[in-house]
C-alpha cells in the first residue's frame, strides 16, 4: 500500500516515519526537500502481512506541486499537525482540500496530532481535533514521535483500514476472490497482500522460528 505523509512543515512528519520504519528519532533532523521514501511490513490480527510504502513529503508550499504527484496512487494519507502550534491545525482544512483535488476518491485519511509529549505547550485540544475529524469523516489519533507513543498504532490502524476496504472491494468484485495478488516489482502502488499461513520463511521481524 502506498501511504503519504502530509502536513505543514516542522510538524514532525519525517520523525514519525523514521520512528515507524527504523525506530529512530532525531531532534536535529533537516527539513525534507521534495519527497522521501521508506517501507515497512506489518502483520494484521488475522495473520496477513501488509507491506507499506510510505512517501514523506515536504511541508512547504513551494514543493506542493512536486509532492502532490505522489498523492495519485496513494491509498492512505496521514495528515499531520503539531498540537503545540495552532496554525498547523487550522491549515488541516487546506490539506484536506489538497487531497480532494489530487488524490483518489476513496483514499483513507487519518488526522494525526503529533508532539503529544509537549503537554505543557498544547494549544490544540484533543476534543476539537476529534470533532473536526468526525465532521469530515476521517479518523484521528494523537502521537509522539519522540516518546514513540501511538506511532505504531497510527500506521497499523490506517493500514488495517485500507486492507479491510480493499478486501471488501475485491470480495464484491470477485466472489471467489482469494485476495491473492502477485507482487509487481516495478509498480509502487500495487497492493501487496500475502497469505501468511503457509509461509514459514515469512516475516522474520515478528515471527520467531523454534
Amino acid at each position: 500500500y502506498t501511504v503519504v505523509l502530509i502536513g505543514d512543515s516542522a510538524v514532525g512528519k519525517s520523525n514519525l516515519l523514521s520512528r515507524f520504519t527504523r525506530d529512530e528519532f532525531s531532534l536535529e533532523s533537516k527539513s525534507t526537500i521534495g519527497v522521501e521514501f521508506a517501507t515497512r511490513s506489518i502483520s494484521t490480527d488475522d495473520g496477513k502481512v501488509l507491506k507499506a510504502q510510505i512517501w514523506d513529503t515536504a511541508g512547504q508550499e513551494r514543493y506542493r506541486a512536486i509532492t502532490s504527484a505522489y498523492y495519485r496512487g496513494a491509498v492512505g494519507a496521514l495528515l499531520v499537525y503539531d498540537i503545540s502550534k495552532y496554525e498547523t491545525f487550522s491549515n488541516v482544512e487546506r490539506w484536506l482540500k489538497e487531497l480532494r483535488d489530487h488524490a483518489e476518491n476513496h483514499i483513507e485519511v487519518m488526522l494525526v496530532g503529533n508532539k503529544s509529549d509537549l503537554r505543557h505547550l498544547r494549544v490544540v485540544m484533543t476534543e476539537d481535533a476529534e470533532a473536526f475529524a468526525q465532521e469530515n469523516g476521517i479518523s484521528f489519533i494523537e502521537t509522539s514521535a519522540l516518546d514513540a507513543s501511538n506511532v505504531e498504532e497510527a500506521f497499523s490502524s490506517i493500514l488495517t483500514k485500507i486492507y479491510e476496504k480493499v478486501s471488501r472491494k475485491s470480495m464484491n468484485s470477485d466472489a471467489a476472490g482469494s485476495g491473492k495478488t502477485k507482487p509487481m516489482a516495478n509498480n509502487a502502488s500495487k497492493v501487496i497482500v500475502v497469505d501468511n499461513e503457509n509461509d514459514d520463511a515469512a516475516p522474520a521481524k515478528k515471527k520467531k522460528c523454534c
Binding site: 511490513s41 502481512v49 502477485k182 501487496i192 500475502v194 509461509d199 515469512a202 522474520a204
Partner: peptide, 8 residues
C-alpha cells in the same frame, strides 16, 4: 531480501 515477503 530475507526480511521481505517471499513471492509465492
Amino acid at each position: 531480501v530475507a526480511s521481505a515477503i517471499p513471492e509465492r
